[in-house]
Design a protein around this nucleic acid. Structure first.
Lengths: 235, 235
DNA sequence: GATTGCAGTATTGTTCAACAATCCAACGAT
DNA sequence: ATCGTTGGATTGTTGAACAATACTGCAATC
């Protein structure tokens, strides 16, 4: 170890250059398509067409499919192909149960979390309000996701964070199943603001109760919409 | 719809015959190997050797690898191959934070859960005690996993259940990193028994407190062991 | 008229062989 | 000691081939 090594140790280390494989890149691409709704729920992804379009071999494409099917964004059906996941009313209930398990305790234990994590919640609130001011409804939705992601992050576990991202991505799929009206997200803006205010004030219990109400109402809205949808027509 | 269709509706439906792909079967196989410690943490899985040994093509094998790397049981390192995950002390902290987030709230809300789910917790306790009576330490460990899996299941979310399974599988890997003494699991048997008793009695808060203590102590044991291990020697 | 049986077709499941890209260890030069 | 080079081994990716399966439509049956 020479003296010059000290300089190296001081470098902003974590930005390590990670080489990525073709399969991962394709998976990233498809993931954004699914989350953004460019690939509608239930749509089948033809191996031949996709491999031709994105200039990758079928084998590489299939590796990407495996990654995304473990994330529940794609569904593999033997000899039939892979399809964009198509959540049902049952899935909605499950997703919200999962969110309750993740978000509520995270908020209740927010006292243990570093201030930076609480601030991130506030930033998401502001992002949503800014998007609302610009009338960018899609970004309002994204900001709402960031908000809840920030809530789960209070639990301080990278694994929880990743799981939460998955759950939220799936939740976003739910919105694609039935085109929600643009104004659907509007009421949540003030709600998020209230939750963050309570958090910043250290009143975690109040924040948790607000959040619980939010989740209950949001779930009810979606499940009733699904009931109307799955009842009359077929699955 | 003829009258005979009624009989079909009454069949034990959920046992649907799901055809499985080669890739999934290989993934299942490798998963058990990893969890059971037959493939030690850090070991590299040669594509050529494995494909030859299990008579599958490299491409199929790689599909299985992608599945398992999303489960964090394998780690893909570009141009180097896939390795059995090798958890660090940092991972241990993260895993236990995740478990606290999952298990504690699940126990606290156990009142909402159907009795069958609470009974499942008791069954896991008995499984552990039976295994202990037989001196089958490996099964004691498995039963302990089942116990905590049953706790998380009180949250009533299939997604939570799966996530918990993953977390526990990783936790099991931790035990393979350093061979824990056989008696390591012994004290947990009575602990699990106490937690279940409190649960069955409806005293969820007492159960949660016991569980919290358990997690704290268990985490401390593992992290100190890791500190001794990662400090002197290299990573 | 609805169900069953049977093409034919399209697509996925899987394998194989080849090549490019990269890592790694060993060697040798500075 | 450090660095550049070289060669071998392994992964990354491809394209083509074939088997296995699902789907459609039509004819045959009751």
């Amino acid at each position: 170890m020479t003296a010059t090594d000290d300089h190296i140790d001081r470098l902003p280390a974590p930005a390590l250059v990670r080489p990525t494989s073709q399969a991962e890149r394709v998976a990233d691409l498809l993931r954004t398509f699914v989350i953004d709704g460019e690939l509608a729920p239930g749509v089948r992804l033809s191996e031949e067409k996709l491999s031709r379009k994105y200039q990758v071999s079928r084998n590489t494409l299939r590796e990407a499919f495996r990654l995304l099917s473990r994330e529940r964004l794609l569904v593999h059906r033997m000899h039939r192909g892979v399809f964009v996941a198509h959540p049902t009313g049952e899935d909605v209930r499950d997703l919200f149960n999962a969110r309750r398990s993740l978000e509520l305790p995270a908020v209740r234990e927010a006292g243990q979390a570093p201030r930076a994590l609480v601030d991130a919640v506030g930033q998401a609130v502001e992002e949503g309000e800014a998007a609302h001011a610009e009338g960018d409804w899609w970004r309002v939705g994204s900001a709402n996701m960031h908000f809840h992601e920030a809530l789960a992050a209070l639990a301080q576990s990278a694994r929880i964070n990743e799981f939460m991202r998955q759950v939220l991505a799936e939740t976003r799929l739910v919105f694609h199943v039935m085109a929600m009206p643009r104004e659907f997200h509007a009421p949540y803006l003030s709600w998020n603001r209230r939750i963050h205010l309570a958090l910043a004030a250290g009143d975690t219990e109040a924040a948790a109760e607000e959040l619980a109400r939010y989740l209950t109402i949001s779930e009810r809205q979606l499940t009733t919409a699904f009931a109307q949808m799955e009842g009359p027509e077929q699955a």
